[in-house]
C-alpha cells in the first residue's frame, strides 16, 4: 500500500484513471438521464414525482459511501501515517457534503408533494442531517489549524467517531417508525423494485460514483500541490533567515 504513498506514483495512476472515470461518468449520466426522465414509467401511486428518486437515492448512497471512504482514509492516516491518506480524506469531505446536501434537498422536494411536508424530524432525515454536519465539521477542522498535520489528525478522529452514524442511517427505517420508506434495493432477498426503475437508479449511481472519483482526483492533486507549495515557501523562508545572517547564503 505504501507504494501509493509516493505522490508521483499517485499522479501517474490518476492520469490513467481520469479519462476513464470522466468517460464512464458522461456515458452513464446521459443513459441514466434518458431512462430517469423518459424511458422509465411513472409510479402508479406517486406519478411523475417518482423521478426525483433517480437523483435522491443515488445521492444518499454516495453520501454514505463517501463517508465510509473518508473514515477508511482517516484510519489509514492515523494508523499507518500514510502521507496521501489524510489528503484523500480532506479531498473527499466536500464531495460527500455536496451529495448529502443533494439528498436532503431533493428529499424535501419529494417530501412536499408526497408527505405534505418539506421536512419532518424523522429518524432517517435527522440522521442524514447529522451526517451533513459531520462533513461540515470535518471540512472546518481539517482547515482550522495553522499546522496542517494537527488539523488532519483532529479531522480524522472526528471522521472515525462519526462512523457510528452510518449504521444508524442505514437501519433507521427498520429500528424506528418513520415516514421514510424502507430499503427496496439493498435488502435481504434482493431488490423489490421493478427493473424498469432499477436501471436508471443504477446508471445514476454509476455516474455519481465516477463523478466522485474524478473530482476527488482533481482535489487530491490540488492538495498535493498545496503541500508542495508550502514546502517551497518553507525553504524560501529558511533561505531568507540564513541570508540575513550572511555566511550561509551561498549554500542555498
Amino acid at each position: 500500500m505504501h507504494r501509493f504513498a509516493n505522490p508521483n506514483v499517485f499522479l501517474r495512476l490518476s492520469n490513467r484513471i481520469m479519462p476513464w472515470s470522466t468517460g464512464v461518468m458522461i456515458a452513464s449520466l446521459v443513459a441514466g438521464l434518458v431512462f430517469a426522465l423518459g424511458a422509465s414509467p411513472a409510479d402508479y401511486q406517486q406519478g411523475e414525482s417518482v423521478r426525483i428518486m433517480y437523483v435522491h437515492v443515488p445521492a444518499a448512497w454516495m453520501a454514505l459511501f463517501i463517508y465510509i471512504c473518508l473514515a477508511g482514509a482517516s484510519a489509514v492516516a492515523l494508523i499507518w501515517k500514510h502521507p496521501l491518506a489524510d489528503l484523500a480524506a480532506k479531498a473527499s469531505s466536500p464531495v460527500g457534503a455536496c451529495f448529502t446536501f443533494i439528498a436532503l434537498a431533493t428529499g424535501a422536494l419529494w417530501g412536499k408533494p408526497m408527505w405534505g411536508a418539506w421536512w419532518v424530524w424523522d429518524a432517517r432525515l435527522t440522521s442524514m442531517l447529522i451526517l451533513f454536519f459531520l462533513y461540515l465539521g470535518h471540512m472546518a477542522l481539517a482547515n482550522a489549524f495553522e499546522d496542517s498535520e494537527r488539523g488532519a489528525k483532529s479531522a480524522a478522529i472526528l471522521a472515525l467517531v462519526g462512523v457510528i452514524n452510518i449504521p444508524i442511517i442505514k437501519f433507521s427505517v427498520d429500528w424506528w417508525n418513520t415516514l421514510h420508506q424502507p430499503a427496496s434495493v439493498v435488502r435481504m432477498g434482493g431488490p423489490s423494485i421493478h427493473p424498469s426503475m432499477l436501471t436508471p437508479l443504477l446508471l445514476m449511481a454509476i455516474a455519481f460514483t465516477a463523478y466522485y472519483v474524478t473530482v476527488v482526483i482533481l482535489r487530491l492533486r490540488g492538495e498535493i500541490l498545496a503541500r508542495k507549495i508550502r514546502a517551497l515557501r518553507m525553504i524560501r523562508v529558511q533561505a531568507e533567515s540564513k541570508g540575513e545572517s550572511g555566511p550561509y547564503l551561498r549554500e542555498i
Partner: peptide, 24 residues
C-alpha cells in the same frame, strides 16, 4: 412532461446539476 409534479421534479434535477457542476 412531469404533469402536476413539474414544480418539484425539475428543481430537484436543477439543484443537483448546479451543486455538482459548481463543485467540479
Amino acid at each position: 412532461h412531469m404533469g402536476e409534479y413539474a414544480a418539484f421534479v425539475w428543481p430537484a434535477y436543477g439543484l443537483t446539476a448546479i451543486v455538482l457542476i459548481g463543485l467540479f
